[in-house]
Amino acid sequence: MHNNIEVLGKSISQGKGLQINLDIAKLHTRTKIEVPIIIERATEPGPTILITGGIHGDEVNGVEIVRKLVAKGYNKPEKGMIICIPVVNIFGFLNLSREFPDGRDLNRVFPGSNRGSLASIFAYNLMKEIVPLADYCLDFHTGGANRFNAAQIRINEGDKESLELAKIFEAPFIMQSKQREKSYRESAIKLGKKVLLFEGGKSQDINKSITQIGVNGALKVMQHLGIRDFKNELAQDAEKTVAPIIIEKSKWIRARYSGMFRTNIVLGKLYNKGDKIGSISDPFGYFERDIKAPNKGYIFCLNEAPIVNKGDAIIHMSVEK
């Protein structure tokens, strides 16, 4: 690390902290919208970790995890630098919308363009000004709409270093998944960054258990990278954690009927082929159809919508050998 680092025209010297604002657009009312970026730098050199939440504006639990890291002072390193952006898509966060005001999904327009849509311009500036500073990225998400995700880390298949970091994070599941085209993760990886994408909970919801797993995981990764010692903070968690389950193959179970959906499954539990995992009925009492597990596997995502349509993805489970 150099003696001084410049971010968005602001100089950050060793041992100093600073909040800067990424300001690229105004609302149609000419109200300025600024995205706070919280930077803390240690006196000793070390890696830089970028921690982000709220790329989708309605995924509040991701915002809560990053907020808690800042509120408890966990973002102050002993070595290196920690950059926190609790709400990346502050436009969507204002009205709890997944998208940007231009209707685009920010996580589908990276690396962006300075001459594109509002979302694309924002992505471009994030990739140009902030991401190059990082060595490692932690990106916090939730399930979309009514889908509740068990806590999981998503990484690229075949990336040994990211797999090791995912194991250190100790979320219950590690999912080796393909990169989404034009996603933040794909673009950051192309810049040579190691990215752990956390999924947990559902949109417009804060879940205490999911939040704690996310916070503890971030502390474990930062401790492993030598950024800061969190042994005291993690002491109580040590007795509760178990080795993460690696998901190499998974499938969505889709509704075969439209109707009222109910289930008593335990998220994260292993089910056998043929186990009853739910049912769908009409609202008038004429029929009720059981949903059975098509294979042995762990259920790690559940659609909590009470009403579903034929073809809706309702349960996501691993395919175990």
Rank of each mutant, 00 (worst) to 15 (best):
M81R: 07
Q212N: 08
S177N: 11
E239I: 14
K193D: 06
I49W: 00
E288I: 12
P86N: 14
L27F: 11
I65H: 07
F148Y: 15
P36W: 12
K240C: 09
S209F: 06
Y184N: 01
C137E: 06
V308F: 11
V131W: 10
I168V: 15
S258N: 03
L96S: 03
S258G: 11
K16F: 00
V242R: 14
E64L: 15
K182T: 04
T43Y: 07
T31L: 13
S250V: 07
G285V: 11
I213P: 10
M1R: 02
D105Q: 05
Q14Y: 09
G103A: 07
A171T: 06
E288V: 13
Q176C: 11
S120T: 09
E233S: 11
R254V: 13
D229H: 02
H56Y: 06
V308R: 09
I121Y: 11
K68G: 09
L118W: 13
L106V: 05
A313Q: 14
A171D: 07
Q14R: 13
F173G: 07
T142M: 10
L8R: 10
K178R: 13
K276W: 07
F122H: 01
K249Y: 00
Y298L: 05
D205V: 09
E6M: 09
V308H: 10
G311H: 09
L270M: 14
I85V: 13
L196S: 07
L22N: 12
I82T: 05
V70Q: 04
I55D: 03
E304Y: 06
G217W: 05
V87I: 15
S209A: 11
I299K: 05
V308T: 08
E186N: 03
L196W: 02
S162N: 15
A218C: 11
Q176A: 05
N295A: 14
I12K: 04
F93M: 06
V70I: 15
C301W: 08
E170Q: 08
G103T: 00
S177K: 11
R115V: 05
A238S: 14
D205F: 14
N146E: 08
P101C: 00
A25L: 14
V319M: 10
H141C: 05
A313S: 15
S97R: 12
